[in-house]
Design a protein around this nucleic acid. Structure first.
Lengths: 407, 407
DNA sequence: ACACATAATAAAGTGACCTAAGAAAGTAGG
DNA sequence: CCTACTTTCTTAGGTCACTTTATTATGTGT
């Protein structure tokens, strides 16, 4: 199963992955795509059928011989719960194997509550969600928990996240796991969103991509050769703390000119306030950054010149950081996810796409695609849920697909 | 040997890697370090001995039972040639399995010669080097060829490198392979330098690190989990084109504020010329950037205030880009390689180290080590040579580098 | 000399793959 | 309908890199 050099048997997961993402598919096609022989696929598929994960659902047209049997996923056979603890909301989703949202719940964010209280709330919310859906608990594979900011995966705790500073070092993953009685997978929101995109099949044309996640801060989940990249100590993806001005503003993180200070919602809202004070923008501020940012974005989408300017400036700074990232690690697909893109995502996508086309070093070899997340506002929660499925059903698949293209 | 999921039998390579890097070592220790059983190690080691790659070289002290046999590499059993086509020199090295330089040759750079002429020159130079050393050609595993700038690994060609613009699209790797009659591995200098560090054992405490290479431009070789990261299309590591000022100088690459424009030798020399014009620096410029940069660096090391200021500014800009990179991909070791660090490397290392300690987001969890390459000025050429050894003898330990083989 | 410890090899088993050959299920021509 | 052919899927046996469990070699301490 797992050899000592860390490789892991994966053909079952790989096959499941392909069946899920490539709809009804035959054994022959699976063999072609994985590079495995039909004989091997045959036994792998039999295993998946006995596990109840897939079934045969009909036959294809004959091409002169025995027709192929179509294989399809049994979406309801396994379920997963995703929990995104964001700055202003906690979002819960229940998804099936196909990534379809079976249930959803959005509760107020934890704000200043202690992590212990928050864990209790999460547990009761999850319980309510499950019982409200009348689901057999045994079908639930596990719970994915994602939070913004730097985390320590080993201890399952948050580390100095600006919005949840007082949760630092609290063993969140373990606590949620015991409180809910479900196996708990823990990661940061940007990484989860990246996995979510993959699971939904939105990135099937790229094995390497970045999923930029902008909530209050800015992060990026990096998928390399079909594997989530976690870095040496899981502190990967702090795109918000890439500097766009070595002589610029001082960031609380210690660095100078962090793009977060120029492009993230708090920066945009601050700039909007200044514009408002100068009489260039007509907006009633609520004091809640997320809502005010949404208002600015809405105005920009409606064509307000000043709001448009503010959003474009944010997008351009963000794009500058993304260009640096692309030059550094050679990505050709950027997915935009997170609440900050829910209103003016298209504006961001256009600006970022344009700047990538003009500025990326390798643009002559291949351009960079920019897409908005297929998972909308729930990208992180949905990613959390799919993360669990990934972990349990396709442990290695976010890599094995490589083979298809191998010579 | 190679299963269809792209995994490759590697225990032999892994074992060789450990024997090479961890000096005389016993089978028992190998078993502990690899996680394989003693039985497996026993057979793997037998294979390496029959291949002539290693031998038993004595026994350890007994700890109450049968003493362990020491295993050691046979350095001379295999040789490799590394060729670095730089801006001002072509550097050739011949190394053995231990990474010891057996032969070395430095020839003038290709300047404006056509790639066809250059290939001919390289072939005769290699021939001269080999015959001068009286080496059995059959022991030569292959030739590693590295160049600055963006390359296309698939075609084995350079792509728009500033110093070798007219070589774009010429199938260099194939040409050198046929001209020399040696299997040819092709990559960029920064990546090669990173592999060189690994092979020399200088990074044995980190599985993930970056090797910053500064010649005329700035690149970085990224090793992730012990594997060289090549990116989706092998355009990874363009650290020089990370922006440090989104509103800054316009780079020929299309991007704005590229760190290369602030920190690389041409920028330092330009700044030195301005300082000289203002009478703040006493230096006779030769017009050759590499030599003038060396002069400035020498003055800085000697304590000249203005030169020190220039070098420090370069280091600070470079550090800013490195901080961004570290925040993005979570590295905890940075190696500095390339000719630009040969004089004032320690100055750069100090400045970069300081800024990383102050500015990296995850600094509370673990700091970032900064080291100067153990391979000095020949880091790229030496890396090229070790790349070949890596490819042929330890395919998996730094995951495979695609090959451009001669017929 | 003895018991005991440790190292290295041998032997047999396992899992994931392979190749090769057959069984099953269709089409096309007589 | 029968036969020939094609294509899909399964079965059977083999290989490879491991494993676990013994066995043999080579020491130390009493």
């Amino acid at each position: 199963m797992v050899d000592k050099l860390g490789r892991r048997s994966s053909s079952k997961g790989t096959a499941l992955d392909l069946i899920r993402s490539s709809g009804p598919i035959s054994r022959v096609e699976l063999a072609e795509m994985t590079g495995l022989t039909q004989a091997t696929i045959s036994t792998v598929v039999r295993g998946l059928i006995t596990d109840g994960l897939i079934s045969e659902t009909g036959r294809a047209e004959s091409t002169g011989g025995k027709p192929r049997m179509h294989l399809q996923i049994n979406p309801g056979s396994r379920l997963s719960i995703g929990v995104h603890v964001g700055a202003d909301h906690i979002t819960y989703v229940v998804t099936d194997l196909a990534g379809t949202v079976i249930g959803r719940l959005r509760a107020p964010g934890p704000a200043d509550t202690s992590p212990i209280e928050a864990v209790a709330t999460i547990a009761t919310d999850v319980d309510r969600l499950i019982s409200g859906l009348d689901i057999d608990r045994s079908r639930i594979v596990g719970l994915g928990l994602v939070t913004p900011g730097p985390i320590d995966k080993r201890s399952g705790s948050i580390q100095n996240a600006p919005t949840l500073a007082h949760w630092t070092d609290f063993p969140l993953a373990r606590a949620v796991g015991t409180a809910t009685g479900l196996p708990c997978v823990f990661d940061n929101d940007a990484t989860a969103a990246a996995i979510g995109e993959y699971w939904m099949g939105a990135t099937s044309d790229h094995l390497t991509y970045g999923s930029v996640y902008m909530g209050m801060g800015i992060g990026v989940g990096i998928v390399i050769d079909g594997s989530i990249y976690h870095g040496e100590l899981s502190n990967v993806g702090e795109l918000g703390h890439v500097s766009v001005d070595a002589r610029g503003r001082v960031c609380p993180c210690g660095n100078i000119g962090c793009v977060e200070l120029y492009a993230a919602p708090p920066a945009v809202v601050a700039a909007a306030r200044r514009a408002s004070a100068e009489g260039r923008l007509d907006l009633a501020f609520t004091g809640v950054v997320a809502r005010d940012f949404e208002a600015v974005a809405t105005l920009a989408m409606a064509g307000d010149a000043t709001a448009l300017e503010l959003v474009t400036e944010s997008a351009e700074y963000l794009a500058s950081a993304i260009v640096s990232m692309v030059n550094l690690i050679d990505l050709h697909l950027i997915v935009l996810a997170g609440s900050a893109f829910s209103v003016a995502g298209s504006l961001y996508a256009t600006t970022i796409s344009r700047m990538l086309a003009e500025r990326v070093l390798a643009r002559s070899i291949s351009g960079v695609d920019v897409r908005i997340s297929v998972n909308g506002d729930d990208a992180a929660a949905l990613g959390a849920a799919t993360m669990v499925l990934q972990e349990n059903l396709s442990p290695r698949s976010l890599r094995a697909v490589t083979l298809a293209t191998a010579p």
